[in-house]
């Protein structure tokens, strides 16, 4: 599937300074019943965003209209727990294009990258600076320059790492299947050889 191409993003950001946010919080299991990829944004952080009577909770950041933007800034170990890709779909569907944290869980990171959502790892110090700056002035614009691998907020900049292949995919809006389909002949041969080692019953 071809995704939106990602180059440079300038946007305000939404701060969510909580650590160890698991994918059950990002999208609770009872909302995983759809058989398409769309519409998950409505239930992003459902149980933090709405009370049991489905009323928005005033103290949750997504219900605070001072904050908006395409960048979500979160505490460390974001996306741990369940492998549900629905978490990445929900964040993307809500309108975010970048999640910034000092540490991401592995599967979430892959899922995000496979859906045109950039999981951007910064230092703990830079992360704390982001939280403070955004909370002081929610209008602060952050710049994410994927090509040069630099993120900045105000005067402060930091470079970030990304696998070069994944970077190309994001910039060109390509996905892994296109790449793997190109290896089809080698895979067919590999499969045959494997069946000699472990016969399929």
């Amino acid at each position: 599937m071809t995704k939106e191409k990602f180059t440079t993003l300038r946007s305000t950001a939404v701060p969510l300074p909580i650590e160890n946010i698991d994918t059950d919080q990002i999208i609770p299991a009872r909302f995983l019943k759809a058989t398409t990829r769309e519409g998950f944004g409505d239930n992003l952080f459902r149980d933090w965003r709405y009370d049991s009577a489905n009323q928005p909770k005033a103290d949750f950041v997504l219900n605070n209209h001072s904050y908006s933007g395409k960048i979500l800034v979160t505490g460390k170990n974001f996306g741990c727990g369940s492998s549900r890709e629905h978490a990445a779909w929900a964040i993307y569907d809500y309108g975010f294009r970048v999640v910034i944290s000092s540490f991401f869980a592995d599967i979430f990171k892959n899922n995000a990258l496979n859906n045109g959502l950039l999981p951007l790892v910064v230092s703990e110090a830079f992360l704390q600076h982001c939280f403070e700056t955004i909370q002081q002035d929610p209008k602060t614009v952050m710049v994410v320059d994927l090509e040069h691998q630099v993120v900045s907020i105000g005067q402060r900049r930091e470079s970030f790492d990304i696998n070069p292949y994944k970077k190309t995919c994001l910039i060109n809006g390509q996905d892994d299947i296109d790449y793997l389909l190109g290896l089809r002949e080698s895979i067919l041969q590999f499969d045959k050889a494997q069946q000699v080692i472990t016969p399929l019953s």
Binding site: R84, E85, N115, Y165, L181, R184, I187
Partner: peptide
């Protein structure tokens, strides 16, 4: 190991995943 749905599609389509 566990994978996301995009990777499920990769495996169905190519019997491979791309992983470091």
């Amino acid at each position: 190991f566990g994978i996301g749905t995009s990777e499920v599609e990769q495996v169905l389509a190519t019997q491979c995943v791309l992983q470091p």
